[in-house]
Amino acid sequence: MSAMNPSFSHRAKPLTLNDSAWVRHTLVVISLLTIGLFLILPLATVLIAAFAKGWSTYAASLSEPDALAAMRLTLLTAAITVPLTTVFGVSASWAIARFEFRGKNLLITLIDLPFSVSPVIAGLIYVLIFGAQGWIGPWLSDHDIKIIFAVPGIVLATLFVTFPFVARELIPLMQEIGHEEEEAALSLGASGWQTFFKITVPNIKWGLLYGVLLCNARAMGEFGAVSVVSGHIRGLTNTLPLHVEVSYNEYDFVGAFASASLLAGLAVVTLVVKTFLEWKQKQDLKAARQAAE
């Protein structure tokens, strides 16, 4: 039935030929100019500037201790924040997509809130709590615990800015998939965890990976929020994006762009994988809809 079902065949191409040639060409030229000037040129510039003084300078500036420390800190931050945000995202979407309860819409709005808050505010709120003049700042300094201008502050600020990333992908996906397969598994005697790992996870895996991917890109690339809480201590509290800033402000352009090229590489990989995951997920949903026919 599925293979023959015509409703999933692609619709005929929309009326491209109705627009006169000059309209089409003008619009395409505007699009390509915009994409070129705002997207392609910057990407190319990173590489050109990074290699402006050749391979060896590039390699040298990446292997300098401060750069290496920044990379380590960036990886560490991502290694802590991405799993936490993922666990949160999965449990939030389980609660929201599988159950009815009062205040659900408010909860969804609150989960989205960190998206619309300026990253600088995300840093500021932690300074107000943990900073020297903050709520528990004096107590922390009495006990010799450092959060602000230290790694925990960076992790907290990153947790805030990546907060919605996984939940946002999973909630609509799980709502679309529905819960019939999970009920079927339960009726066949599976436990809650068995149902989750054998049925739910395989069904949401592409969306989950998608959310994790974007979360990781943001965790490694976050600048504003981290900048507020880091204190810019070279070799200690500089993440890679902060290292880019410090190098740039010290007129070490090759150093700045060398680090930037790593982050740009991360962005490109993210985009490629993202495109792949979007394609995979579309296939899965299509199959799901056919299976439900």
Binding site: E183, A184, L186, S187, L188
Partner: peptide, 16 residues
């Protein structure tokens, strides 16, 4: 899971 029932869902709910 403890009721020993077999349930056939309207849209089958086969694990895709």
């Amino acid at each position: 899971k403890n009721r020993q029932i077999g349930f056939v869902f309207q849209h089958y709910a086969l694990f895709r």
